[in-house]
């Protein structure tokens, strides 16, 4: 793979690892996560951020490697996956409405309406309910005046 631009990838056969620099403008972190997740069962993946607008991915083979070629194949595969993930990230944003509509229809159509048994088994307890966006909070809880001196913060 002599067509990898110089300075983008560096190989260390002794450490069985290859490092690739990634431009964050081209490949968003979500795409990097996507590609990394696919690779963590076949090699060691470590992501760093050496500078603003730049990521550095280190892929380590699980065992020893014979030569640089094995590392080239690994990083080449990763680069292909990364490109696919970056493009998917873009088009899922572009086609979000369409994808969501089809998915909701598909799952809703398959699931149908809940039965009385389903409702009876529904877990209404507070513990199981995660509300990271604060949707279930009252307006006062969410936007009430800030606790002043002498008042307990809620």
């Amino acid at each position: 793979m002599s067509d990898i631009p110089q300075g983008l990838v560096s190989f260390d056969v002794g450490k069985a690892a290859v490092t690739m620099n990634v431009d964050a403008d081209v490949y968003p972190l979500q795409a990097l996560y996507g590609a990394a997740f696919i690779f963590i069962d076949r090699c060691y993946v470590f992501i760093d951020k050496p500078a603003q607008g730049q990521f550095r991915v280190t892929l380590g083979a699980r065992g020893t490697v014979e030569d640089e070629e094995a590392l080239r194949r690994l990083v080449g595969e990763f680069a292909n996956e990364l490109l696919t993930c970056a493009w998917r990230h873009q088009i899922t944003q572009d086609n979000r409405m369409l994808i969501e509509a089809v998915t909701m229809q598909a799952i809703g159509g398959a699931a149908g309406s809940p039965s009385l048994d389903d409702l009876a088994n529904f877990d209404f307890s507070d513990d199981a309910f995660e509300d990271p966006l604060g949707i279930a909070q009252s307006w006062e809880e969410k936007h009430g005046k800030k606790a002043g001196a002498g008042e307990d913060a809620t």
């Binding site: 696919t84 088009i91 994808i99 699931a111 809940p114 039965s115």
Partner: peptide, 22 residues
């Protein structure tokens, strides 16, 4: 309903939607 609303089914449905596929 547990089965068809399983997160894996949702993921498969999303993953095979060609409008999200490069």
């Amino acid at each position: 309903r547990d089965i068809v609303t399983h997160e894996t089914v949702r993921a498969m449905t999303l993953a095979s939607n060609l409008d999200g596929q490069p």
